[in-house]
Write a protein that binds this DNA or RNA. Structure first.
Lengths: 140, 140
DNA sequence: TTAAGTGCAAAATCTTTGCAAATGT
DNA sequence: ACATTTGCAAAGATTTTGCACTTAA
């Protein structure tokens, strides 16, 4: 079910504009989540920085993209594969943040169920590991 | 072993200055981690904003404070209770970020051991839940 | 045609850097 | 006395807002 960028836009009542298509292409053709600074570099010549901010937050609200804040506080974006409805993401797998290349990987490992103290209500949970990813391990 | 602010400074070869003592007092008298914006508000009249930045990063480098980036990308600080040495924190317990009051709690629950794919090297791991904390649950 | 979306300029924040004055030891 | 640390000013970076122009439907 690898939906094409244009179909994603259609399915979400969004117009087919160049910035939106470019952003989706960038993010979909990856093994890892893409950081916002990275997107700015790649799309710098084609998409205005402000438009990028607005595009990303639209996509997040619609549940098209999933925003992951890494350990350095940088925003990273990945396609939502799980059953996300708008404003309510279920993306509860392990994220891995490489300290060398800065990539954030969405690994296919479920977060172990965790009990929290009574009186706390849990809405979501995120597990973020950091270290060296496979690519950087090979290179060194 | 509730060490006094001044003893913490002594133990880390830091001079006893007003900003440092005030920051430590703010952070130690809490059940939850304190966000940087919160610290700015509380200490606004007494400590320069730039000094606060520098103080917090000094404390983090020394292993006195532990920095936690919450889901919104905001920095939160808590005392390191575990055996932290400079530049190498072991703070692997569950953090809980209240979406209502924005507090970050350090809960005394260990992160379940997690296996990552071969070729990835894990250096640290962080588990962050969000939802409603006990205080906010009572109020509503 | 027209509502939605973009791009630019400009404001509002947040974070870092440089340096002279103040302070702890 | 002297190395540290602070506070201010100012540069740099990030994020948001307003508005006129453009474009997809």
């Amino acid at each position: 079910m690898n939906t094409a960028p244009k179909d994603i836009l259609t399915a979400n009542d969004l117009k087919q504009t160049k910035p939106r298509l470019l952003v989706l292409e960038q993010i979909m053709g990856r093994d890892a989540a893409v950081s916002q600074p990275d997107l700015e570099k790649k799309l710098g010549g084609e998409v205005d920085r402000v438009t990028l901010y607005r595009t990303l937050s639209t996509f997040e609200e619609k549940g098209i993209l999933h925003k992951i804040i890494d350990g350095a506080g940088t925003a990273n974006f990945a396609i939502c594969h799980s059953n996300c409805t708008s404003h309510h993401h279920h993306d509860e797998h392990l994220h891995f943040n490489c300290t060398q290349c800065k990539k954030v990987y969405c690994l296919d490992i479920k977060i172990p169920s965790t009990t929290i103290p009574k009186n706390f209500t849990m809405e979501s949970i995120q597990l973020m590991a950091s270290g060296i990813c496979e690519n950087c391990n090979i290179k060194s």
